[in-house]
Design a protein around this nucleic acid. Structure first.
Lengths: 345, 345
DNA sequence: TATGAATGCGCAATCGGTTGTGCAACTATT
DNA sequence: AATAGTTGCACAACCGATTGCGCATTCATA
């Protein structure tokens, strides 16, 4: 380790030290030296020198000159559930594997914050912008296309950029089927099944509601409007909605389709506060959380296949789809629906 | 909205359009126009033009020239628990409030990934690097100081940069006290209390163990070495460690100090699998998760005060402490230890 | 011993902002 | 009317990389 450089080392400094030129040093350090016919000997000397002196490329200068930042941007609603946090982690890991730098920003499901974050990412000239669970993906996609950079949607689809999402309808159908199967096994009337959580205006919730409906329809079960309560995601909202439902109906639902782990939090809290036994009610959750699974092993969960979703995303980053309205659905996996489920484990 | 610009708009384009000069346009757009005595009229004209044409400053160019990126970097072990995810979220929110851009990278508690992420952040010339829960904070601090940029530690302290951490020892003492109080209330022998989870080589775990010991000592309770099992954080490790403990002791511990929510996951799973009743055992967890709290309201949790920790961090970003080895401890809050706790709620 | 090709490297322009400095034109002062 | 001060803006030199181009050498071939 050499002594503290008072100023950051540049290729000009290295060129002087190596008695060479900045262009040569640059070529050596960015790996294009063979193409520029720099001798292996000189290359090695410069590389050693750079290593010894602790040189680090100024990415701003590189980005400016190359007109490519080497950065991938992602906006995300939140980090604080397993679904979104694993999206961030797997996205980062995959980008790192490819030597790409990532910037992730969470925007709290707030359209203004989404736009502002996108504006910043565009100012930093990210090469792609991944728009995850955005309230208004098309607005972001438009900003991106105006800036001439590609955008992709994840989790919630848009019409202005390609989207990778979960197979929400089919997933919801399967989750509902699992609930109905358990009711049948316990010979419980399937009339009182409640769908709770999510936003009526978001695509995923609408699809899941549709899947829920279809699964019931196929068994000739009617679904009342009051059985479907997209009361937003927040735990408190779900708590209040369940309270209201029980107030109206006079008793607990026999089964519940809970639309997210954050809604589940409210549901569970409400049940606990009321002194209800979790096992008296059959629950499914369209999302996955290992702690919840540990606490309540009879809870059925849909685990969205984040690895596959991210893999498809990178496929599109590598080779952009010709059709910008392309939509790809990835099937989630059902967890906790073992055959032994009806009995006590 | 004007027609699609084929090339990204620059201050030179704007200068031409406004029949002005690049330096004037620059001054107007970065807010220094008053100091440079640009007339209000011209400034307005240029601002309107920039707005109309959808101009966006090239941050790479700005950063290069200013020699300041305007970026704050943070490395983080993971996103997938509430503690770290709220650190990321609150950090971002606070930075956004100040108009600072952030880059967060998670490094999976892997020293190599930590160094690599730090190297990248330094290459992008972040202005500060926050090192959260790093396995080797001093190594990162050294890299930073060699590059001439300030670093700060969060969650796990180092000796080469100022650190903001939780009051682990005192927090652990209080959590242990809560466990012992409950044992007393139930008139249960306090011999069989198990500390489980974490890494013996990390500072926080050592401090918590010390707090655990002290709380027992103050009640004249001896602590056997086998009562303390820092088996790493992973759920599987905790699961195996508990299994081993029970195998040795012939029965369950009466109470447990679980060192993280991820360890808690393994503990709860193991208890469930064995058909044990969660309420037969008094549990505390040094960390907080609202889903866990909802599922198990008698679980006592220490919620680390992330908001305060981040606030202190930004204090130091604003005015760096004179002493680089400075360490600040922020008291965590105990959750779920209400007076009504011993009875059924 | 010419001639042409290949090898090895440096020159200088460039990316898009920022900022020290200078120079008109205008206003106030004596 | 001459001088000094103020106002309003443009010039041009950077920041640190990248890259098209060109010029010496050296090597192979005739």
């Amino acid at each position: 380790m050499s002594s503290e450089p008072s100023r950051k080392l540049t290729i000009y400094d290295l060129a002087k030290l190596a008695k060479s030129s900045p262009s040569t040093v640059s070529a050596v350090l960015n790996g294009t030296w063979q193409r520029r016919r720099i001798s292996r000997k000189l290359a090695r000397r410069i590389l050693d020198l750079a290593e010894r002196e602790g040189y680090s490329t100024n990415m701003q200068a590189r980005a400016l000159r190359r007109d490519r930042s080497g950065i991938l941007g992602m906006i995300l609603p939140l980090y604080d559930n397993r679904y979104f946090s694993s999206i961030a982690q797997i996205f980062e890991a995959e980008a790192r594997r490819r030597g790409i730098f990532t910037i992730v920003s969470c925007t709290n499901r707030d359209p203004d914050q989404e736009r502002e974050a996108a504006r910043m990412m565009l100012a930093y000239r990210v090469e792609h912008l991944i728009c995850t669970g955005a309230t208004n993906p098309d607005a972001i996609a438009e900003m991106c296309s105006a800036a001439g950079i590609a955008s992709l949607n994840l989790d919630l689809p848009g019409t202005a950029a390609p989207s990778v999402i979960s197979a929400n309808r089919e997933g919801a159908r399967r989750l509902t089927d699992a609930l109905l199967d358990r009711l049948e096994a316990r010979k419980i009337d399937a009339a009182r099944v409640l769908f709770i959580g999510g936003r009526a205006e978001d695509h995923n919730t609408r699809e899941r509601i549709e899947g829920f409906r279809q699964a019931r329809e196929r068994r000739d079960l009617a679904t009342k409007p009051t059985d479907i309560v997209p009361c937003d995601y927040a735990a408190e909202k779900a708590q209040a909605a369940l309270e209201a439902y029980v107030g109206r109906e006079g008793r607990l639902p026999a089964a519940m389709f809970v639309n997210s782990t954050i809604s589940l939090e409210g549901i569970v809290r409400w049940l606990r506060l009321g002194g209800h036994d979790m096992n008296d009610i059959i629950m499914g959750c369209f999302d996955w959380d290992p702690l919840a699974a540990a606490f309540h092993p009879r809870l059925i969960m849909m685990r969205q296949d984040v690895s596959t979703m991210i893999a498809r995303l990178f496929d599109w980053i590598d080779t952009p789809p010709e059709d910008p309205t392309m939509r790809l659905e990835v099937m989630p996996e059902i967890i906790g629906n073992s055959a032994a489920a009806p009995g006590r484990g």
